[in-house]
Design a binder for these strands. Structure first.
Lengths: 249, 249
DNA sequence: CAGTGGTCTAGACCACCAC
DNA sequence: TGGTGGTCTAGACCACTGA
């Protein structure tokens, strides 16, 4: 690598030492973030990357291993290393935690109620770190498991970053795949806040419940590779015969 | 190592090849599981373990790194590698997901209502994989955050594995620390199932709520290093000004 | 200062896959 | 058969800690 953190002269770093493999990792993450490496694509072999960056193969390996651990890459022995894609299975496993009691995990269907480009109010701007005057695209939809309506949700994304999303037709079931493929936005992490509340009348109607029935409310902010918030989503879920699964490790 | 997976003769493994570093890891995990390495204890250095097992230092490092990633070990540069302990901070971070809206994470207080040794009913036996006729110790307690009652919970553990727990006095706030210190049971993982329900009258009284208020119900089964279920816990949580936090990565 | 974990390298060989 | 990732080794040097 060009300079190896500027340590060639042998001076002691007082602060801010960054291991070589992390610098390599940052460089490779950037290649995904800015779209030079597309979702699902085969990336160069360890040896090629090592040669290109003038670094040993072991250092590249450590960077790739960390990225694999963060679900950014998928490695397949004998074939190569691929940029992870937001296919249904991954999204299901990583981001969809609701399933039928006693049932297998299952990808939900979606029934879009409305899509609109609207000004962001203060609450939305706070969640997505947007400036005053920003616009957002808001989607309302109902999701079903096994034909039964289970989730009523509202999704909000910045209109600037997702220009034209409100004219997308149809709105796909798996939104994170769309974000990556059409807008170069890779969802890497999300933070969910859960509460139990009485179901409001409008959502109750959509879900076929009595108003006031206890439902789970999931407030999610999803972020991209740089940690920038990209989507705010509030989901009301019936949990009479469904549940939210959380694995603590 | 004694045999290195029996591959010395150079024969091809048709099935069941297990990398050396995993065999090392299994061996070291067993030392924690059976109490030869106690919680919080300093373990031998990489070099010493490598020499003892006749394996290279890099192989030991890979085993230790995996164990560190699973929160079984804590490594401190310049000092050594330690068996992770269930101190308040770790339990708070890894296993306690409820906090006040807008507040910092905080360790809850406990107010024990009852402790009893009782026969396990069918539901309990199913959760903890116990045979017919088994006994359990059941604990009921109320937990508070900042002086406010927030959680009403029931905890059930096998009486065989935790002999005399019902006579423990006092029942400590941090149970997982007690499990490790007195009964050699390290809680390594837990699976939580969440639902929103109407609060039953008894719990409502304990939490100072109106019966029927929506509350979050958390059904947790906690397992030890071998994956054996060790504890079943059902927690009713008020979420009017509190929330459950789930990080998706 | 000695001892620990952390990083980096170089090279060997194995397991797997596609051609 | 060649190329990929996966494992294992050996050794050098760096960064941190505590006596």
């Amino acid at each position: 690598m060009a300079d190896r953190d500027g340590r060639e002269g042998g001076e002691t770093d007082v602060v801010g030492f960054r291991p070589l493999y992390r610098q390599v990792k940052d460089m490779l993450v950037r290649r995904i973030a800015d779209g030079r490496w597309q979702t699902g694509q085969l990336i160069p072999s360890e040896f090629q990357i090592a040669h290109e960056l003038a670094v040993s193969q072991g250092t590249v390996r450590k960077a790739l291993d960390e990225m694999t651990g963060e679900n950014l890459l998928v490695r397949r022995q004998g074939r190569g290393t691929f940029v992870a894609s937001h296919d249904d299975d991954r999204v299901l496993f990583q981001f969809f935690k609701l399933s039928r009691d006693g049932g297998e995990r299952e990808f939900p269907d979606s029934d879009v109620q409305s899509v609109a480009r609207i000004p962001a109010d203060a609450a939305v701007r706070a969640k997505l770190a947007l400036p005053a005057g920003a616009f957002v695209v808001a989607i309302r939809r109902v999701r079903s498991l096994g034909g039964e309506r289970v989730i009523s949700e509202m999704i909000v994304v910045p209109a600037g970053r997702f220009a034209g999303l409100e004219r997308e037709e149809p709105i796909p079931n798996n939104l994170y795949g769309l974000y990556a493929a059409r807008y170069g936005a890779t969802i890497a992490r999300a933070t969910e806040t859960l509460k139990a509340v009485a179901c409001p009348p409008d959502d109750a109607k959509l879900l076929g419940l009595d108003a006031g029935t206890p439902v789970l409310i999931i407030d999610r902010v999803a972020a991209d590779l740089e940690g920038t918030p990209v989507e705010w989503r509030v989901s009301l879920c019936r949990t009479d015969s469904f549940h939210y699964l959380s694995d603590l490790r």
